[in-house]
Nucleic acid binder design. Sequence first.
DNA 1: AGCAGCGATTGACACAGGTCAATGCGCGGG
DNA 2: CCCGCGCATTGACCTGTGTCAATCGCTGCT
Lengths: 240, 240
Amino acid sequence: MNRLTREVLDFPCMEKDTPQYDNIRGHYLFSGLEEEVFDGLAKDIAVESFEKGEILFHRGDVASDFYYVETGQIELSLISPDGQKKIVEVIAHGRTFAEAIVFMRESKFPVTAEAISNSVVFRIPNAAYRNLLQDNTNACMRLLNDVCRHLHQRVQEIERLTVQNARSRLASYLIDHIVETNDDEATVRLDLPKHIIASRLSVTPETLSRLLRAMTDDGILTVDDRLIFVHSLARLRPYD
Amino acid sequence: MNRLTREVLDFPCMEKDTPQYDNIRGHYLFSGLEEEVFDGLAKDIAVESFEKGEILFHRGDVASDFYYVETGQIELSLISPDGQKKIVEVIAHGRTFAEAIVFMRESKFPVTAEAISNSVVFRIPNAAYRNLLQDNTNACMRLLNDVCRHLHQRVQEIERLTVQNARSRLASYLIDHIVETNDDEATVRLDLPKHIIASRLSVTPETLSRLLRAMTDDGILTVDDRLIFVHSLARLRPYD
DNA sequence: AGCAGCGATTGACACAGGTCAATGCGCGGG
DNA sequence: CCCGCGCATTGACCTGTGTCAATCGCTGCT
C-alpha cells in the first residue's frame, strides 16, 4: 500500500482545498452546485481505498451510496448462478458509477463492483445527494441527462450483443478506442487486460485471441502487445 | 379504419373530460401535476392513429416527442445493417415510451417504433414536458425513477443475453407472464405472436418452436395455442 | 538464478442455435 | 367454397463460439 493510500485511510472524509476535492468538484454531477451546497455534501463523502481484486459491493446488496473513481479502475459485472461473469463496464478516473439507483425504489445494486487495480473512490450517500436535488432543478436535469445517456449506452450494448457477431463487436471496440488516426490507418491502445476486454465483448479470451489472429492474417491489423495498428479502417469497418 | 380512429384523426388534439384524457392523466408521469399545469400541456398533445405495420419513427430520427399508448401495441426494435431485427420491447396500453430521450443532448431515437396492431397514441412534445419540469422537482423525481427503472431493465436484459442461454431466457419469459399459479403449476398466456416473442428473446422462431417442443416432450408443460400450462414450475425454474 | 503463477495463445473437439427448405394449418377475401 | 398468404412447425445441415487441455512467455518473489 503506497503512501497516498495510507493517508486517505487515515483521513476517510473529504477535505476542502485538496486536489481530490477539486477533481470531484469538476465532475458534471457536482460542478453545477453552489459552493456551500457542495461543501455541505462533502462532509458526507467518504474516501475509500481498495486493493486490486477487492469487492466494493455485490449485486443485490442494498444500495445507499454511489461512487466517484479518483484513481484506479472498477469493473461492474453480472455473475450467473453457475459462476459465469460478464463485465458490463469498466469505470476509470474521473467517472461516477451506480448513480442511477439514487432514485430507485428497489435500491439494490444490479451489478457487482470489483477493483481491477488498486483504487481510491469517493462514496457519496444517495440520501444526501437526493436531498440536495430537491430544490435544484438544474442538478436534477444533469442527473437525468446522465442516466438517459447510460440507458442509451445499454441499448447500444444490447444491439451489439444481438444483431452483431463477435467479430463486429471487436471491430466496434477497436474503433471506439482509437488513439490516433491517419487516413485509412489508425492506432489503438488497449487500456485493459485482454481477458477483461473479452468479457466486455461477451466472448472468451480464446475467441478474442483467435479473432485478432484472423484479422492479423487478413492483413487488416498488426498486434504489438497492448498496441494495435490498424492498416485498413475500410476493411475493419464493414463489421462495425 | 374504424369509427373511433376516424374521429381522433379529425380531432388531433387532446380534449378535456374524455376517457382518453383521464387515462393519460392517471399515468404516473402526469398524475403528480397540478390540474391547470396538465391542462396546459394537454393542448400540445397530439392524438395519432397507426395501422398495424405502420412506422411511428425510425431509429436515428430526431426525437422531439415522446409517446403514450392509448390502444394497441407498439414494438421498439433495433435493425442491423444487414436487415436483422431485434425487438427490444413491446409497449401496450397505458404505458409511455421514448420518454428517456427527453433530456438527451443527442436527441435521436435509439430504436425504431412500429405499430404491431392498430394503435392510438398520444404524442407529447419533449420541450413542453421539459419546461413543465423546470419548477417541479417532484415530477423530476418521478421521471428519474422511471428512467432508472428502464436502465435497470436493460441491464437485466444484457444479463439474460450473456449469462443465460435461450432455454433460460424462455423460462424467464414464461415465469414473467404467468396469469395464474397454483402450487407447482401455472398458466401462461402468450399476449403476442410467437415470432415477436422469439425476437424479444433474441432467438429465431424455429428455435422458440423447438424449445417449446422439447419442454413439452420433457413433460414440463403443455401448449394449447396461446395458452401454456406449466406442470412443474420446479423443473422450469432451474433455467430461470 | 530458479520457480510459481497468471495471462495469452493454439489446437482439437463439442454443441447451441442459426439457416434453408418443405410442409402444415388457419383465416380472410373473392 | 376455395384460394392464397402469413404464421408455425419440423427436418437436415452448417457454423460460430465455447470448452478443455497443453504450451509458452512474462513478471515478480525468494
